[in-house]
């Protein structure tokens, strides 16, 4: 039993090639799966924080102004409720 497990991990002498192949693919696929989930969690937290201060209600329904506001989040969370909209519009 133990012998056959050891034999399995030896992969007929190709252990390094086989296991590192599967390892690399697993690592890359897990990273790719996690990246958007982490980004969504961060985004939702930022939106929730903005909503609590009330600036989302002011901009409610105005999606077009925010379309170019990629990366404005950091600025918007630091700015006060009244200047947040302006900050979003001037951000790159």
């Amino acid at each position: 039993m133990l012998d056959s497990v050891a034999e399995f991990f030896r992969m007929g002498g190709y252990a390094w090639f086989v296991w590192s192949s599967y390892g690399v693919v697993a690592a890359v696929l897990i990273q790719q799966y996690a990246a958007p989930l982490l980004r969504r969690r961060r985004l939702l937290r930022e939106v929730a924080a903005a909503t609590d201060r009330g600036d989302s209600a002011a901009a409610g329904g105005d999606g077009s102004a925010a379309a170019g506001a990629h990366g404005a989040a950091a600025g918007a969370t630091r700015a006060s409720a009244t200047t947040a909209t302006a900050a979003a519009e001037t951000a790159p």
Binding site: R40, L43, L44, R45, E46, V47, A48, A50, T51, D55, S56, A57, A59, G60, G61, D62, G63, A65, A66, A67, A69, H70, A73, A88
Partner: peptide
Amino acid sequence: LERERRTRWAAEAAR
């Protein structure tokens, strides 16, 4: 979500 973060539905999704 990123693009429309200032809309109402984004706020609702966040809540």
